[in-house]
Computed example of a mutant assay.
Amino acid sequence: MSAVEEFLAMLAAERGAAANTLSAYRRDLEGAEAAIGDLAGADGAALGRLGTVWADLAPSSVARKASALRQFYGFLVDEGVRGDDPSSALPRPATRRPLPRILTHSEIEDFFRRAEDEARSNLPAAVRLLTLIELLYGSGLRATELVSLPLSAVPRDAPFVTVTGKGGLARMVPVGGRAQSALSRWIAIRPEGRFLFPSRGGKHLTRVRLFQLVKDLAVRAGIAPEKVSPHVLRHAFATHLLEGGADLRVLQTLLGHADIATTQIYTHVDSARLVALVNERHPLARGGQRD
């Protein structure tokens, strides 16, 4: 077995990496190997040449590829295959993680008003769409988590669903009253099948179809479709909760983030609200007001 295959096997066995994650690592490692030769025996000079090979790529792509290689060489050192780690020669592009796109509170209201108006027809497609967006915005589910929910993940009369997230890790996600109401309506009229949102052939609704449904609803609600996606609704869930005073650690749990650093992207909340919070809650600020 090659060193790359052994590394991928370790990711799958020890870290529970998903198939898509393993495929991405494989592409990056095999691409680097095609450019400079055997990775297991490559030295710093060889890795330095990747900067030229990757010159036309976006900084984020370069950072991702370099990260895969650094982890690969760390694995080789840990396994005793190499006594040195040449990954310090890899390019380190300066990247700034972009802030997530979110919808304003008024846009969310317009979006849901349209979905609710359409669902009054009680047509299955309209009720399904309302349920989908209630779970995206009301519970912060990822698109893949949502469409692949089995019916058994929704306990009877319980205010939560059991979600299998990245790496096969399960978490319990609370479901608000609005989403519960939509879920009850949908379960009463949904077609038979083991998935909550079944499709033909015993499969479930696809991510692509979910994206189409959400963007089409945005158009009907008078919102530019490029502003809306399932992930944007998840971002709005997180940001609006944080604005309402939610704790960052709680938000991390709700979103299923393995690392709190991923959740911290949502701290781009209104600076005026943060100043007001300090003035209102800080002990010295309260003492000054009493004086």
Rank of each mutant, 00 (worst) to 15 (best):
L123N: 14
T21R: 04
P230R: 00
Q264L: 01
A158R: 14
R82V: 05
P225Y: 00
R220E: 14
R82M: 05
L22I: 12
D270R: 09
G193Y: 01
L99K: 05
R49I: 02
L210S: 11
A246H: 09
A45M: 06
P174R: 00
A58F: 01
E6D: 14
D84A: 08
S148V: 01
I260V: 15
L57M: 10
G138Q: 08
Y137H: 13
H257R: 03
H282F: 04
F211R: 08
A13T: 13
A179L: 04
Q212F: 01
N20Q: 12
V4Q: 09
R286D: 11
S271N: 06
R92F: 00
W186R: 10
P155A: 00
D43K: 11
S2A: 03
P283G: 06
E243D: 14
A58S: 12
E192Y: 01
T262Q: 10
D38E: 13
T144P: 05
L217E: 12
Q180N: 11
H105S: 14
R209W: 06
V173L: 05
E33N: 07
R178E: 15
L22Y: 04
L57I: 03
S271K: 07
S2F: 00
A68W: 07
G51N: 09
L213K: 08
T267H: 04
A276N: 13
A68D: 14
W186K: 08
R249E: 11
A179M: 06
T206L: 02
L248V: 09
M172V: 13
